[in-house]
Write a protein that binds this DNA or RNA. Structure first.
Length: 375
RNA sequence: GCCCUGGUAGUGUAGUGGCCUAGCACGCGAGCCUGUCGCGCUUGCAACCCGAGUUCAAAUCUCGGCCAGGGCG
């Protein structure tokens, strides 16, 4: 169940009710594909302000496997996270050469990257796995095309996504967990509209926008999200999968998105990219060698409370493993704090002013439309 | 004093006459990362100990010097 409590133009603040608690929206989920956020413990995630995380059903089904998870009566008790857990279906792994063997409208042939074995999964299989894992919110299996695939191909992926969506819904036990559907369509207006309408018309508990943030660039992403949102019920929670960066989160909340997840904060942290109120910096640069200030002057995270830029810089330069923890904790805290501020500003009807103030200080990267490819 | 061996980016190395405007790794600099298998990706910087020869052509061969390591006295 989802309830909107405040609206400020398109932006909304509300509550998503799940079996493991209420999630205040809009919110961001750290990624815990294998049942843990990289380098950060559940207790720390709570301190950081995370209300929910997202794990990966397909990956967990490979390791540790459903038998183990069933012995623990589900993922929550296994990983010791008693708040909300989403599970991604594995649809995104279709983009990955190391996972995908082939896919057609019957289902997906996934490779097990650990031992090379191939196995066929129907949408029903995936739903069954997600139910057994015991997440609070399951994601439907979708067929994610690469950015840059032909329109014909993307139309076909979208068609299959729709077939799968219906089958996921049909086989899903609504009493056990919430189920979100995912629209596709690439950045093609007609395909995206059609897909948003189709998924919206099914009885999902939430609607996700999939296949974005994969190289199309900010402008295409915003335009596409906006197009899709026109055809999605206002009352349903909207989830933009795979986003993202501080700047994208703010802008997308402004479009009316309630829910996000992304590896962006943690992946950046592992590569030296640190979020600050002035913009993203690379902590490995020499200019921080003697900098006694915290990573971000305005941050109250445990890392900023204690350490200097110079020390963190040193940890990165010397490849000390703990640098990943500090970087991840800071970046995740930065994002959770941002979401908290965003929620507050919506409640006070000051979202636009908040956004303006944020971008006054936050320097955007020069190259915003860099393409990258999954392998 | 004599003999041997070796001197290639900051470091470690590849290269024994033309394929070397010298390769690789680490380093240093710049950029990137968006439903994570990934301490990753892209790109730039930086060297043939010195001198004289041989040769159409030398990091590579010869001679002298300097330096380092080893052996003999």
């Amino acid at each position: 169940m989802f309830k909107i409590n405040y609206e400020d133009k398109e932006a909304r603040a509300g509550k998503l009710y799940t079996k493991h608690g209420i999630v205040e929206t809009p919110f961001f989920m750290p990624i815990a594909t294998k049942g843990t956020a990289k380098q950060v413990s559940p207790d720390e995630l709570k301190l950081i302000g995370s209300q929910a995380i997202i794990a990966n059903a397909f990956v967990l089904h490979l390791k540790p496997g459903l038998e183990v998870l069933n012995n623990f009566k589900g993922i929550h008790k296994f990983m010791k996270w008693d708040k909300t857990i989403f599970t991604d279906s594995g649809g995104f792994q279709i983009l990955s050469k190391s996972f995908l063997h082939k896919a057609d409208e019957k289902g997906v042939y996934f490779k097990n990257p650990f031992d090379g074995s191939k196995k066929f999964f129907t949408p029903e299989d995936i739903i069954d796995i997600e139910e057994q894992i015991g997440s609070d919110v399951a994601m439907a299996l979708d067929f994610v095309p690469h950015y840059g695939n032909s329109k014909d191909y993307i139309a076909e992926c979208t068609r299959i996504t729709h077939l799968w969506a219906e089958r996921c819904l049909k086989s899903h036990d609504a009493k056990r967990q919430l189920l979100f559907g995912i629209c596709q369509g690439g950045i093609f207006k007609d395909l995206r509209e059609k897909s948003a309408k189709f998924i919206n018309n099914l009885d999902f508990d939430g609607i996700a926008l999939g296949g974005l943030g994969i190289g199309e660039g900010r402008e295409n992403m915003f335009n596409t999200a906006q197009i899709a949102l026109h055809h999605i019920d206002n009352a349903k929670p909207r989830y933009l999968m795979g986003v993202g960066s501080p700047e994208d989160l703010i802008d997308c909340v402004g479009l009316g998105i309630d829910c996000f997840d992304s590896r962006f904060p943690t992946m950046n942290a592992r590569h030296g990219g640190i979020f600050t109120s002035q913009g993203k910096i690379n902590i490995e640069k020499v200019q921080y060698k003697n900098d006694e200030n915290p990573l971000d002057e305005n941050c109250k995270c445990p890392v900023c409370k204690k350490f200097s830029k110079a020390f963190i810089h040193h940890l990165y330069r010397t490849h000390e493993p703990i640098r990943d923890r500090y970087g991840n904790i800071h970046n995740l805290y930065f994002i959770q704090n941002l979401m908290k501020d965003i929620r507050k500003s919506i409640k006070n009807n000051e979202f636009n002013q908040f956004k303006k103030d944020f971008f006054k200080n936050y320097k955007l990267n020069k190259n915003k439309n860099t393409k990258f490819t999954y392998s």
